[in-house]
């Protein structure tokens, strides 16, 4: 069984992101970048399926500037077998990413795609669902449990009221939620080994896909800030403030 894992390079989750003065974007110069945390979870899940003998091959794919190859190397260092780098210098949105992944999916025919539920930069939570629609495959979003049985997967999904269990025929798309697993760190020997693993390069132009963004970003601004609050000294003072000043209880 072949698993495709799309991984995105994003601003590290520990960085406090700032808006640029000219309000065109957020500040990305000299900011620490990492693999999207949900994609690490996706890579980890694929590795566990391989270790169980269910999967035979794991391919990590990333789309973007040449830097995204670092993210692919990360996935290889964790244990993925090979990578695909789609070289694309223009701005991407989930619709285009899903189209590119559809084209790659049709070419390499994976049995399963595991990807993040959400990229923590654009917070779209969309690419997996769009890709499933385009490939006309079943989807299991927000997965916190995954089991493979023959040509089916059983997935526990995190929904607003708790957990929902569904069964999806393969090939299928799974998007990961936080509780699916805890990703491993790449060991030093594996980081060394990863340097020799193959990464295929594809130029986005060669795929002949319309990737013109449909959402033009007019402005990126700071959110409204909250007024500074105060520290209270005791529970009594807290209750008094809530009752008489804030009037919320």
């Amino acid at each position: 069984m072949k698993i495709l894992v799309p991984v995105k390079r994003v601003v590290d989750y520990n960085v406090k992101v700032r808006v640029k003065k000219d309000e065109t974007d957020v500040e990305l110069d000299n900011v620490k970048m990492s693999m999207n945390p949900f994609d690490e979870i996706a890579v980890e899940e694929a590795l566990r399926l391989k270790e169980k003998g269910v999967a035979s091959e794991i391919i990590a794919v990333s789309i973007g500037l040449p830097e995204v190859q670092e993210t692919i190397r990360n996935a290889l260092a964790m244990g993925a077998d090979s990578g695909i780098f789609v070289n694309c210098t223009s701005k991407l949105e989930p619709l285009s990413v899903a189209k590119i992944l559809t084209s790659i999916g049709n070419k390499i025919k994976p049995d399963l795609v595991i990807m993040g539920k959400q990229a923590i930069d654009d917070d779209m939570n969309a690419t997996g669902q769009m890709l499933s629609a385009m490939l006309n495959w079943g989807q299991a979003t927000f997965a916190s449990k995954l089991e493979i049985q023959d040509k089916k997967i059983k997935v526990g999904r995190e929904i607003d009221g708790g957990i929902e269990n569904i069964e999806v025929n393969l090939p299928a798309i799974v998007t990961t939620d936080l509780r699916l697993n805890e990703p491993r760190y790449a060991s030093l020997p594996n980081i060394m080994k990863a340097k020799r693993k193959p990464i295929d390069e594809i130029k986005v132009e060669d795929l002949k896909i319309d990737i013109e963004p449909k959402l033009e970003i007019l402005k990126v601004e700071e959110p409204k800030s909250r007024e500074a609050g105060i520290m209270v000294k005791s529970v009594d003072e807290m209750i008094e403030k809530l009752k008489n000043e804030a009037k919320v209880i």
Partner: peptide, 23 residues
């Protein structure tokens, strides 16, 4: 933007070849 909406809306956008505007 509930778990249902987040599950269905982007799939619909994929079917209709349109870019979703989430949240």
């Amino acid at each position: 933007n509930t778990s249902n909406g987040k599950n269905i809306a982007p799939r619909l956008a994929g079917l209709l070849d349109t870019m979703i505007i989430p949240d």
